[in-house]
Computed example of a mutant assay.
Amino acid sequence: MSEAPAGGGSAPGQPVPCRVVVCRDCCCGTAKVPGVDHAAQTARLRAEVPVRVSECLDACERANVIVVQPSAAGRAAGGRPVWLGLVNDPAATEDITEWVRAGGPGIAPLPEILGLYAFPPPRR
């Protein structure tokens, strides 16, 4: 008998959920953004959805940066990754987890409050 993976992953044969990328390198996830429990933020997100920790996403002026990637169904419905910046308080993290639980990009509309954090991805 197999168990569902920890961290909001899907069991074999189940639809792939949204995924989240958290920036944790030179600015995001460091003492440069004081007063944020970065480990708790990552753990809270992992409780709901698969999380990938990335090095610099080249949006340092918006630290902490989190990218919500659509599920397969969300992408099929036209959803695209949503970049969120200045995610520096637990309430914002909770807003992200609620949106992910509702389906995320392509499935559930972006909550108005998260629209305040959204920004276009940087050009590399």
Rank of each mutant, 00 (worst) to 15 (best):
Ser54Thr: 10
Pro81Arg: 05
Arg62Met: 12
Ala72Tyr: 09
Ala77Tyr: 04
Val68Pro: 01
Arg44Asp: 09
Gly79Met: 04
Gly29Arg: 03
Arg80Gln: 15
Ala73Leu: 09
Pro70Glu: 08
Val33Tyr: 09
His38Leu: 08
Gly74Ser: 08
Ala43Ile: 06
Val65Gln: 04
Pro70Gln: 05
Arg75Cys: 09
Asn88Leu: 11
Leu84Asp: 04
Val51Asn: 01
Gly35Lys: 09
Cys56Pro: 08
Glu55His: 14
Ala40Trp: 05
Pro81His: 08
Val65Phe: 05
Val51Ser: 02
Val87Glu: 00
Arg75Ser: 14
Lys32Gly: 00
Leu86Met: 11
Ala73Thr: 06
Asn88Ala: 15
Val33Asn: 11
Arg52Phe: 14
Thr30Ile: 09
Ile66Ser: 00
Val53Gln: 12
Val65His: 07
Val51Cys: 00
Ser54Leu: 05
Pro81Met: 11
Asp58Gln: 14
Val33Ile: 11
Trp83Val: 09
Pro81Ile: 10
Ala31Glu: 15
Lys32Asn: 13
Gly85Val: 03
Gly85Glu: 02
Gly35Trp: 14
Gly78Tyr: 07
Glu55Lys: 12
Ala72Asn: 09
Gly79Val: 07
Gly74Phe: 10
Ala43Pro: 05
Leu45Gly: 04
Pro50Ala: 05
Trp83Asp: 06
Trp83Glu: 05
Ala59Gly: 12
Glu48Arg: 12
Ala43Ser: 12
Val82Ile: 10
Gly35Tyr: 13
Ala59Pro: 01
Gly85Tyr: 01
Asn64Ser: 06
Cys60Ser: 07
Lys32Arg: 15
Pro81Thr: 10
Gly29Ser: 11
Gly35Phe: 13
Asn64Thr: 02
Leu86His: 15
Val67Tyr: 05
Ala31Lys: 12
Ala43Tyr: 10
Lys32Val: 11
Gly79Asp: 04
Glu61Asp: 15
Ala72Ile: 11
Ala72Pro: 00
Asn64Arg: 07
Glu48Thr: 15
Ser71Ala: 04
Leu84Gly: 03
Thr42His: 13
Pro34Asp: 09
Pro50Ser: 00
Ala76Tyr: 02
Ile66Glu: 00
Ala59Cys: 07
Trp83Cys: 06
Ala31His: 12
Ala59Val: 06
Gly74Gln: 08
Arg44Leu: 08
Gly78Asp: 03
Cys60Thr: 00
Val53Leu: 08
Val33Met: 02
Ala43Val: 09
Val87Asp: 02
Cys60Glu: 08
Val49Gly: 00
Glu55Phe: 14
Asp89Gln: 12
Ala47Cys: 03
Pro70Leu: 07
Ile66Tyr: 01
Arg80Phe: 06
Pro50Met: 04
Ser54Asp: 05
Glu55Trp: 15
Val82Trp: 03
Val82Tyr: 03
Gly78Lys: 06
Ile66Met: 03
Gly74Val: 05
Ala47Thr: 05
Pro50Tyr: 02
Ala73Gln: 09
Val67Asp: 01
Trp83Met: 02
Cys56Glu: 00
Arg44Lys: 12
